[in-house]
Design a protein around this nucleic acid. Structure first.
Lengths: 355, 355
DNA sequence: GACAAAATGTAGAACGTTCTCCATATAACG
DNA sequence: CGTTATATGGAGAACGTTCTACATTTTGTC
């Protein structure tokens, strides 16, 4: 018998549940029972099976599992991977999932409704156990339709009336109010918001919520019935152009609230280039408290909504939903102000919790 | 005449390949053939089947597909989601995948070998069609073992001798050389590198490659036989501490090359805080040309390795491997210098391609 | 026309799990 | 000892695809 050199160790060497069963001298069903620790397994059987699993380094096929039962995977859908807020959410999700037997698979939709839909469908077709959607673009009815097929928790999606899925949000209205209150407290009266220019402004989006909060706080502060909001395009050549135009307006406001640090930081940069001093000529406050904002070079005051915490909460909610909860939950977190030099010279990284 | 009307073929409303077959009045196999556009389908059959697919909005189950054949999904493994270089790679991957029938699912390993392994295993267990690993931590032998089970392309992993998988890299040695050459061209002689303090320094890692390039260029420039390299820890409290210590050294070098923009930008920030002028007192050049580096506020000279392009190339390589290629490929890109104010006052965003 | 070759469609066996019955073996009870 | 409950293990049918092997029809050739 010649020693046949297996030059092509084909995939037939896969260890399946059957291999384990044979090795342990039990039935396939028994192994499955042990894996799912179902009722009706003696200690002796359990020991033999776990030994075999150990010895063979057996891993159940997720594909096969998905076909029949649970896949122990949860899908995460990100609208964008560049906004530094989103990695924070992922970190939160992974943190909660790490000690469990679940795993996260991430899809990036690049803010395209088309792609978002097909990614969600794929995750359903993979028989994932649940979905965390971060700032989805899809309308609520569509999400509800998906939610019939798979447990869904939406983060950064304001629809407290949704009954088919859960939502987890920072209170974006309140966040914007806090920003305005901070500007007012510094004595600024001439305040404008730089918002996101979207095609159609979803009422559910965080951006619109922040606009609502901005308006309310401005009116409450006695600053006109329709406070100024400028829309900045998201794509790159037009974006800087719009900001420059804003900065060189001769009725340019004294203070600005930006919907996101991403915009605030670019604004700060352009302001410097154009010779405007911050905060002496222009005070700026952003949103997200990204790590870039905290840099000494940037020193941008910002609203902190703790993406990490949102991710954690959303994941816990999802798991409880997977495990049977059906009544929908709508969770709110209160964001906080992080004051820095872009707001006022003395405001040196003081983390001020506000309700 | 068998009048066996199906009592309840599907209790839930899922549209399966069987539903389509019944609706089109053909066999399941025929539908499958059309889906995979396999040999032996007449135009008439194809038309009937595609009509039925359309009418029923049929989507094949990815789980079931994975169990038998291909799943049309490729897995992407990211070492970290915070380094802004990585989203660029994702953008490249998604760009190439978008027009195809493939889809990307992303896993984030957080630089944990443990998690990295289990994520790769999961992707294999999902029967994904191939894997793009971005800056994996695992040793080459392990990757080779995985590569037997699934096509693999590694990005940012220098192992040109690997035969089981492909690699796609920017030439990190050359990149570091370009950085040193740029510093030399500005007249600086007193140059040090700020590198990453890892537990064990993988020779395959981009960081080690940059160190090699740094050393070579320094020696070639006649600057000592063992140029100085300082290691900076990656975790946050120690990191800033080490940088501050570096900045306040009284033999602090005149110019610094940082392994990554992430470090360079923090360094710039701390330098400002500590009253060092850039570039008059300290010249800095980073790596990755992240969007933050390009900000006017930051104005960091950097080496551009176009993560997007790397992602595109890697994806194309992976697809060709999935479609049958077995000989391994090792692709190199040459990075380029983006000169900015942190290097020299006049160096104003001149993109200088260098070989 | 006869016969081979090519084209087209189908049946049915995988793929690796889960999970619902069922068949025992053992314990409990009168 | 029967008889019944209970604990334990196993058989085998799904799940929704892919794909080989084969049956049937059409086309081509002499």
């Amino acid at each position: 018998m010649p020693i046949e050199e297996k030059q092509k160790p084909q995939r037939n060497d896969r260890v399946t549940i059957r291999t384990v069963a044979t090795h342990a001298g039990v039935s396939v069903a028994a192994v499955s029972k042990v894996m799912r620790n179902a009722y009706g397994v003696s200690d002796a059987l359990r020991a033999r099976v776990t030994d075999a699993i150990e010895a063979l380094a057996y891993r159940p096929s997720r594909a096969a599992r998905g076909l029949r039962g649970r896949s122990f995977t949860i899908g995460v859908l990100l609208i964008d991977i560049r906004n530094p807020f989103l990695p924070e959410v992922i970190a939160g999700v992974n943190g909660v999932l790490a000690p469990s037997h679940y795993q996260a698979m991430i899809g990036v939709s690049d803010a395209r409704v088309q792609l978002e839909t097909s990614l969600i469908e794929s995750m359903i077709d993979y028989k994932m156990d649940g979905l965390v959607l971060v700032a989805p673009r899809l309308p609520s009815e569509i999400l509800a339709k998906f939610a019939v097929q798979i447990p869904i928790v939406a983060v950064g999606y304001h629809d407290a009336s949704a009954t088919a899925f859960d939502t987890v949000n920072a209170d974006d209205q309140r966040g914007a109010e806090i920003a305005v209150e901070a500007l007012l407290a510094c004595g600024y009266r001439d305040i404008e918001m730089l918002s996101l220019g979207e095609r159609q402004g979803h009422a559910v989006s965080v951006v619109r919520q922040r606009e609502i909060g901005f308006r309310r706080a401005m009116q409450r502060g006695g600053l006109g019935s329709s406070p100024a909001i400028s829309k900045i395009p998201i794509a790159s050549p037009k974006r800087e152009e719009a900001m420059r135009r804003f900065l060189s307006r001769n009725d340019r406001p004294r203070a600005v609230f930006c919907w996101s640090d991403l915009d605030a930081i670019t604004l700060l940069s352009l302001a410097m280039e154009m010779g405007a001093r911050v905060p002496e000529d222009l005070a700026v406050i952003g949103y997200d408290n990204s790590s870039t904002a905290a840099l000494g070079l940037v020193n941008l005051a910002s609203i902190d909504q703790s993406g990490r915490e949102l991710g954690q909460i959303a994941t816990r909610a999802l798991i409880s939903r997977i495990e049977g909860r059906t009544a929908s939950e709508h969770i709110f977190q209160i964001p906080s102000l992080v004051s820095r030099n872009s707001l006022t010279r003395s405001g040196n990284s003081t983390d001020t919790k506000q309700g």
